[in-house]
């Protein structure tokens, strides 16, 4: 069954979105648009609301106020099929440690209604895990898990690719691989949103920069050299 029929979009839009828990504000009045080919860097200190924003975009949480629109349509109108177009890679890796790399990929491929044959082998290949495919994930290093998690998140070729601090604990080589992958995705027409507090990584990778502090969007502009200096000016000490 092809579940992808019907739902697709080439932009995602936050319209005056707020999210708070009682007195603790996570996000306030955020309006932001990202289109196909963009790599939007959500930058800001820890606790600024980046993860909450990613959760809202992933449809895992609902905004307290405002609306998230996918190609102009609110999530509620698009139904479950919308989720075939969204991929999320978070700091927590969304893998079952007891299962093997292959079992994890097969399970998630089937969950998305995809045929795992071929697809899973290709994903294992691109994660560089073909030799370890049938080993349990809990025996993997952080880098191996991260590569597997990346492939898992991209199995169903999502239009909207959400990354929440994907570089934590990785060596330079692994970071380079993920960065290349992000560029390739954006070039192929994906909308990439990348939340990170690591400016060095964001610099030169992202095409747009959204700075967030205390749940507020304090700037949203095309990426330009000198990111660190502007960040320091707007967010404060780093």
């Amino acid at each position: 069954m092809d579940v992808t029929v019907g739902v697709d979009f080439d932009s995602v839009q936050l319209v005056d979105v707020s999210r708070h828990f009682g007195r603790r504000r996570a996000l306030a009045n955020i309006s932001l648009t990202a289109g196909a080919g963009d790599i939007v860097g959500l930058l800001g200190p820890n606790g600024a609301g980046k993860s909450t924003l990613i959760t809202l975009l992933a449809t895992l949480a609902a905004p307290s106020k405002g609306e998230v629109r996918y190609g102009g349509q609110p999530a509620s109108r698009l139904g479950p099929a919308l989720r075939t177009r969204i991929g999320l890679l978070a700091h927590e890796l969304h893998l079952y440690p007891e299962l093997s790399a292959r079992q994890n990929l097969v399970f998630f491929a089937e969950l998305y209604g995809l045929d795992p044959r071929g697809l899973v082998d290709a994903a294992l290949e691109s994660a560089g895990l073909t030799d370890r495919a049938d080993d349990a994930v809990n025996g993997f290093s952080r880098g191996m898990r991260q590569r597997l998690a990346l492939e898992r998140a991209l199995l169903h070729r999502p239009r909207l690719v959400l990354f929440d601090e994907p570089f934590t604990g990785l060596d330079d080589h692994a970071v380079g691989l993920i960065a290349d992958r992000l560029r390739a995705l954006a070039a192929a027409g994906a909308i990439v949103v990348l939340a990170t507090h690591d400016l060095d990584l964001a610099d030169g990778l992202v095409t747009r920069v959204a700075l967030i502090r205390n749940g507020r969007l304090i700037s949203d502009e095309p990426a330009a050299p000198g990111l660190r200096a502007r960040y320091r000016a707007q967010v404060g000490a780093h």
Binding site: P80, H94, L95, Y96
Partner: peptide
Amino acid sequence: ERERYGETLRALLLAPAPR
């Protein structure tokens, strides 16, 4: 607890089937 570790419950909720 198994679904909480690695936040796989969220990964399940992201699947395109009715929740």
